[in-house]
């Protein structure tokens, strides 16, 4: 359990993404790509939001082959 405190997620407020320059079409495209990417990250969060540390620790198989 002491391990869990070591892995506190490092969330930051500021976005490191620079704004795209160039034509409107390129900006639109970039926006769309970003939205889709965020959409996937949100969906990943839905899968991972539960106790990730607990999940990983309990994923032990007794061998086989």
């Amino acid at each position: 359990m002491s391990q869990r405190t070591k892995h506190t997620p490092k969330r930051e407020e500021t976005s490191p993404e620079p704004e795209e320059k160039g034509g409107e079409a390129a900006t639109e495209r970039a926006k769309k790509v970003r939205e889709e990417a965020d959409d996937i990250l949100d969906k990943i969060d839905e899968v991972l939001e539960k106790n990730a540390a607990g999940f990983v620790k309990s994923f032990i198989q007794k061998g086989g082959e």
């Binding site: 869990r4 892995h7 997620p9 490092k10 969330r11 930051e12 490191p16 990417a37 965020d38 996937i40 990250l41 990943i44 969060d45 899968v47 991972l48 990730a52 540390a53 999940f55 990983v56 994923f59």
Partner: peptide, 22 residues
């Protein structure tokens, strides 16, 4: 990489480890 960048996680975070399995 996409997840770690977007969510500011490192390779050694449990969320990243769970993503590796999921």
């Amino acid at each position: 990489e996409r997840y770690m960048k977007g969510r500011h996680h490192g390779l050694d975070d449990p969320e990243t480890a769970m993503l590796d399995y999921q």
